[in-house]
Amino acid sequence: MTVAAKLVVVQTKRTLREPAAVFFVIAFAPLFALLMGLIFGNDPVPEFGDRGYIDANLASITAIVVAISGLVVVPTDIVTQRETGALRRFRATPLRPLTYIAADVVVRFALSMLGIAVMFVVGILAFGAHAHGSLIAVLTASALSVLTFLAVGYALAAVLPSQGVAQGVGNVLVFPLIILSGAAVPLAVLPGGVRQGAQLSPLTQLVELLQGLWMGQTWSENSLPVLVLLGVIGLATAVAATFFRWE
């Protein structure tokens, strides 16, 4: 077994031992979909264009999940490991930071996609939601979203000095971005100026991509959101690789 493979195994075991990580990475998405479905049902209503709540919003839940994970869970976890000295032992080894980050990203990516996939299963089987477009395309966009916000999470972890700061910054960022993204509150109900400003957020672009593909749009019709997310991945990865430190 290669060093990278061993590190993936170790990171998987460590992540699964963390209750918060298990909840937000795996369980939160399907539980949120189940709760919203039980509260609002999925009967067609005019507010959602004669679609049900789950039909209209299921794909958008992905954006909420990845935002919480990337802006709060990941940086807080990594900074906490640094503060407690859990990362220090790697400094004495020839292991490069990029190898550690790659293994951790693989684990978090796989577990996040598991939770998102279960969320779609819950929405489809329990509430009769259905993709008007390609479900494979929606899942591919979900994978892109996970990678984007994992990169953001590592960039934040690389530059934030402490667990308290990581939690504070994450919470300050995540709730306004979710509200302004259209994932929690339809953008149509927001003032025009706010809607225009919200377009600058990568989370808003992500919601538009997910909803567009869910409703049957093509990738070419969503080229701007894709380019924005790829740009965020590139920038955040560069920051994480440049400033990541063991202690």
Rank of each mutant, 00 (worst) to 15 (best):
A129W: 15
L58Y: 10
M1P: 00
S181C: 00
I179A: 04
I26W: 14
A86I: 12
V122P: 09
T242K: 14
V189F: 01
P46N: 00
G170P: 06
R51M: 13
R14P: 06
G123N: 09
M119T: 03
G231L: 12
G168A: 10
P94F: 00
V121I: 13
T99K: 14
L187A: 06
A33D: 04
A21L: 14
I78G: 03
I64E: 01
F24L: 03
G192C: 02
F90G: 15
V25A: 09
T148Y: 13
Q211S: 15
F109R: 05
G52F: 12
V107N: 13
F24A: 00
G170D: 06
Q163P: 01
I78V: 15
G133Y: 11
R82H: 08
E47V: 09
G212V: 06
D104Q: 12
L7Y: 09
G85Q: 11
A158N: 01
G70T: 08
I101F: 13
T2S: 11
A63L: 10
I136K: 15
V152K: 08
V122L: 07
L229F: 09
A236Y: 04
L213E: 03
T93P: 12
L200A: 04
L187F: 04
G70F: 02
V106N: 12
V138Q: 08
P202L: 02
V9C: 09
T204F: 02
V165P: 01
S181E: 00
V10Y: 13
T80K: 15
A29Q: 01
S181Y: 07
P19H: 13
G52E: 09
G170K: 14
Q199W: 05
T62G: 04
S112P: 03
P186Q: 14
Q205R: 12
V194D: 08
P46Q: 06
I68E: 05
R96I: 09
G153H: 07
A158H: 07
V73F: 12
L144P: 02
E208K: 12
R17M: 11
P30C: 02
N222W: 15
G52P: 07
L235H: 11
I233R: 02
F109I: 08
A198Y: 00
A236N: 01
S112D: 09
L111E: 04
